[in-house]
């Protein structure tokens, strides 16, 4: 079950972030096989098993309050983490509506939404927020609608406008990105922002994924998992703040890798929005230390094999190369070479 007793923990400085046994159990381990390569790993975002991270449209977990606090710190340091081009105002309201309706439906004990015609009242229990506003009138909210709710939902969000046969990242709320920059990418098109990703061109992955998304339909959201690694449980691994987290990569050893090195998995969901015809792309980040991961031996074995055999271009792109040896040394202690059945399940 998903434990919602919020913990006070940090994603920077003293890094007190930890996962409870429940959170480890429901961690979205992304490897069903011993080998990993990019693919168009898109599936329907249907409600999943009770307690799983895909039970609801948006997953709220034990890290909710601390993660929202971390967002505010990052935004406070760098206002450019939120940006919305003027033609995205309808999409902003679509996002506010989808997130408020989903959270209040899926977590009624935490969030409530009451509507009296266009006058809406939103209550966020965990964060102690209550506001009444007129839907569609941005002047009645303390912040723009996208920023207002972006601060109250775990994860990062991009709003994409569809035109000229492609998608444009025309608004974003990005405080926990894996080394890419909103300030750089805003206003860019699909193939432009995916430019740095290696190996995908020759497999036609980006063309196929784009065609699929262009015909994404309302009422039929989809999801995929993406992964990388992060040293220390840090959400804000942005290029802007590289000096604060980059050097940590050099401090990983075979002895401390279990504690320092984290598998970072993104649950990415995509929704077609009603009024704007835009697409919402949400990136929900889950962090787990190798020690926590190794609570389930098959996960440690499998991750060892995936990392050991990962394509060098991917090791480079994901920034793992510098500490690859150290992490492999730590993981190899947990891998007896036993054959593993297909599947990403913990036991």
């Amino acid at each position: 079950m998903n434990n919602l007793a919020y913990k006070h923990e940090t994603f920077r400085d003293d890094y007190t972030y930890r996962n409870s046994p429940d959170a480890i159990r429901r961690f979205p381990f992304p490897f069903a096989e011993d080998h990993y390569m990019y693919s168009v790993n898109i599936e329907q975002h249907q409600p999943g098993a009770k307690g799983s991270i895909v039970e609801h449209a948006f997953d709220i977990d034990e890290h909710y309050v601390s993660e929202c606090e971390d967002k505010l710190i990052t935004l406070g340091q760098d206002k450019g983490r939120y940006a919305a081009l003027p033609h995205m105002m309808d999409a902003q309201w679509d996002f506010l509506e989808l997130s408020m309706e989903s959270l209040s439906r899926d977590y009624p004990h935490l969030f409530t939404l009451t509507k009296d015609g266009e006058r809406w009242t939103w209550r966020n229990g965990p964060l102690g927020i209550e506001d009444s506003f007129v839907f569609g009138d941005a002047a009645t909210l303390p912040l723009e609608p996208f920023e207002y709710m972006g601060r109250q939902v775990q994860g990062d969000f991009v709003l994409l406008d569809q035109r000229e046969g492609t998608l444009f990242a025309d608004a974003g709320f990005i405080t926990s990105q894996a080394d890419w920059s909103l300030a750089f990418d805003v206003g860019m098109s699909w193939h432009e922002w995916h430019g740095p990703v290696p190996q995908v061109e020759k497999m036609g992955i980006m063309d196929r994924a784009l065609k699929f998304l262009m015909s994404l339909q309302q009422g039929n959201p989809v999801r995929r998992l993406n992964w990388t690694m992060t040293i220390n449980p840090r959400l804000d691994t942005s290029p802007e703040h590289f000096p604060e987290w980059g050097p940590d990569k050099l401090k990983v050893t075979a002895q401390n890798a279990g504690e320092k090195a984290h598998l970072r998995v993104e649950l990415q969901t995509m929704f077609r929005l009603p009024r704007s015809n835009a697409i919402l792309f949400s990136i929900r980040c889950y962090l787990i230390s190798l020690e926590e991961l190794a609570t389930y031996p098959r996960w440690a074995k499998r991750f060892h094999r995936v990392l050991r055999d990962l394509h060098p271009d991917l090791l480079e792109y994901k920034g793992i190369k510098v500490y690859h040896e150290a992490v492999l040394a730590w993981l190899s202690q947990h891998d007896d070479g036993a054959e593993l059945a297909l599947g990403a399940h913990p036991e």
């Binding site: 693919s39 898109i42 699929f212």
Partner: peptide, 9 residues
């Protein structure tokens, strides 16, 4: 199946 939309293969 995965995507049910002709993209994943």
């Amino acid at each position: 199946y995965l995507c049910r939309g002709g993209a994943c293969g």
